[in-house]
Nucleic acid binder design. Structure first.
Length: 618
DNA sequence: ACATCATGCAGAAAA
DNA sequence: TTTCTGCATGATGTC
């Protein structure tokens, strides 16, 4: 049935016939839509009538190979800075900037699934009122709408200039493609240039300014003008008659129908500045648009398929945190999943730019993310607050591209589940196949990616085709992490585990003898037979991981380093990773950081502090 | 006041 | 004598 629909849509697309958005979307995960159907029935009623219209004039431009190049030509996700995925967020994230749109006073009626696909509508017949309705929804959408998906994408748009405020804040990402028409540049897309400044702090500041006023980019007035024009025209003019893009989109839908729902799509929003940057780099012509569209779609699918991991723990002040526990020195921006409380309260993560990872063990983790260790460091990009802690919220709000993970449920568990995607350039978590960690550890400064890094990006891109395996390869769920204390790395061979996380994510212990637990060392693939147990302690328990001596030794772990424990949701085994944190030239004997800051940040119990950001925000 | 956890330390076990 | 084991204590953070 669905297959038939798919064929029909495809034929229509190729034939330049009208294609109903409804039909196109029907190709997607039926469950996701069914679920949405109920919620958004009302709007669908009206939206559903709007046919997707593909301009026949573009027929010749339709490159049937687009679908093929889709996954090959895309700029690799890692190329996008500031990717951030959190959970459910689009709603919770609904930033203040997302003010309601305006043209219509219609209440926040339910959303239309076509909302996210608005860009496919070339039919400008939709009246302003309808349009207002869309935006109204987009902007008012505050109620978290859990989906079975791990993530949704959301890209915020900075507030428009004074006179436009309220009208365009919540523009759909696709709508914003329209901006590309206005910026004329054929520079090659260089993600690094997204940085407004080589100085992260500076960048942060710039971004803040940007949040208040639109970027003073050349032609920004035109942008605004065009934007207003779009408002009048329904705002969807950008893709008007562009069947090629529609085709691309359709192919993407087919590829991702199992993973992406309309809800995900609907939550795609772009920062205007991002669009402008993108159009600057990609060009404002058709190819440019195509590239950006691909990029966004791929980015979105990546986010959906694999929710990135949590933020790493804060580094001890004297240590070098060049990375997270999951990647070789790169705090993974995507799926920002900081300690719940931190996120909510805007409490930061210490990732001082000067820190950098000195991990020695070859690790696969760095390659598990779209953002490689040699690429962007959102922490760096977003700067740090004086305390050496990046404002979390800042991270969110400044990221040109943000992925807000819904909740990771689709990844297996209702809570804090982080799944790592396979690297674009490796096929196995253990084998790595990535650039030497030494490389990865370098360049983690506030500077733009080095040419070496960019080369790596290209390499990653060229190998992107291998990403097809990521879904099946990794189903790792983040369980807990622990910053190692002297007593953890001493000769006692035992590591105290955070109580809440242990009780939440590790097997329940009936006796204090505990249980044997095999931990596969992610770095070396070696399996360590450890013992997980507890000690009675003040009417409570103290959880320990014993027989950790060799693991610590082999990994060269020292005080201040940390371990991260995951479970493979597929085979149920536990995986452990030791992450070394060093700052060359600095010694650890300095004053010790506050204990709480030293410890793992995943305290959240059921809401592990590293739980998805779904509740985050703002 | 209470909870967590880093670590001190006594006693047992092993070398 | 050294190492291991397990509990106790106290510092620190949270409620």
């Amino acid at each position: 049935m669905i297959k038939d629909k798919e064929l029909q849509v495809e034929q229509d697309l190729h034939g330049g016939n009208e294609v109903k958005l409804e039909d196109m979307m029907a190709v997607m995960n039926p469950n996701g839509f069914e679920a949405m159907e109920e919620d958004h029935h009302e709007v669908m009623g009206s939206i559903g009538e709007k046919d997707l219209w593909l301009d026949r004039e573009q027929e010749n431009l339709l490159d049937l190979n687009d679908a093929t190049i889709f996954y090959n030509d895309f700029p690799p996700l890692p190329d996008f800075p500031c990717m951030s995925s959190s959970s459910s967020s689009s709603s919770t994230q609904a930033p203040k900037k997302r003010v309601t749109a305006t043209t219509s006073s219609s209440s926040a009626s339910s959303a239309s699934r076509s909302d996210s696909f608005a860009f496919l509508k070339s039919d400008a017949e939709e009246d302003t009122r309808e349009r207002g309705k869309f935006q109204q929804y987009k902007c008012d959408q505050v109620k978290p709408e859990p989906t079975a998906l791990s993530s949704t994408a959301s890209m915020e748009i900075p507030p428009p200039p004074e006179d436009a405020i309220g009208d365009v804040d919540c523009m759909n990402v696709m709508e914003n493609f329209g901006y590309m028409d206005l910026i004329d540049s054929n520079e090659i897309w260089d993600p690094s240039t997204v940085f407004q400044s080589e100085n992260p702090q500076e960048y942060l500041e710039n971004q803040e300014e940007e949040a208040v006023a639109p970027p003073l980019l050349e032609g920004s007035q035109q942008v605004q003008k065009k934007q207003n024009q779009d408002e009048e025209n329904d705002g969807f003019s950008f893709l008007q008659g562009n069947s090629e893009l529609a085709m691309i989109f359709f192919e993407w839908l087919k590829q991702n129908k199992d993973h992406i729902s309309a809800e995900d799509m609907r939550n795609i929003k772009l920062k205007r500045s991002t669009i402008e940057s993108a159009s600057k780099r990609l060009g404002s012509n058709k190819e440019g648009k195509k590239q950006l569209l691909k990029l966004i779609l791929e980015w979105d699918s990546a986010a959906v398929v694999a929710a990135p991991p949590a933020f790493p723990p804060p580094p001890p002040p004297s240590s070098a945190y060049g990375g997270d526990p999951y990647s070789n020195g790169v705090p993974v921006p995507v799926s920002v999943n900081p300690p719940m409380n931190q996120v909510i309260n805007g409490i930061p993560y210490p990732y001082p730019p000067e820190y950098h990872m000195m991990e020695q063990v070859q690790s696969w983790s760095s390659s598990q993310f779209p953002i490689s260790s040699s690429q962007y460091n959102p922490y760096l990009e977003n700067g740090y607050i004086p305390q050496g802690i990046p404002q979390h919220q800042a991270v969110f709000n400044r990221n040109p591209f943000q992925i807000f993970d819904t909740n990771g449920e689709r990844l297996g568990s209702p809570s804090a589940n982080w799944v790592y995607w396979s690297p674009p350039h490796t096929s196995s978590p253990s084998t790595g196949g990535m650039i030497p960690s030494s490389d990865a550890s370098q360049g983690h400064t506030a500077d733009r990616p080095s040419s070496q890094q960019q080369n790596y990006q290209r390499q990653a891109s060229s190998n992107r085709v291998q990403q097809g395996n990521w879904k099946t390869e990794k189903n790792l769920k983040f369980l807990l992490q622990k910053v190692l204390k002297q007593s953890d790395v001493g000769n006692l061979g035992r590591i105290v585990l955070p109580k809440k996380e242990a009780e939440s994510h590790l097997p329940e212990l009936d006796s204090r003898d505990g249980i044997s637990i095999a931990m596969e060392d992610i770095g070396t693939s070696r399996v360590w037979n450890m013992r997980y147990r507890f000690w009675p302690n003040n009417k409570s328990r103290m959880y320990l991981l014993e027989n950790t001596g060799d693991f610590v030794r082999v990994n060269g772990l020292q005080e201040g380093d940390f371990i991260v424990i995951y479970s493979d949701t597929k085979c149920g085994k536990y995986m452990i990773r030791g992450v070394k944190v060093r700052q060359p030239g600095l010694k650890l004997e300095g004053k010790k950081p506050a204990r709480r800051n030293m410890r793992n940040l995943c305290s959240a119990g059921h809401g592990s502090s590293l739980a998805p950001i779904k509740r985050a925000v703002r």
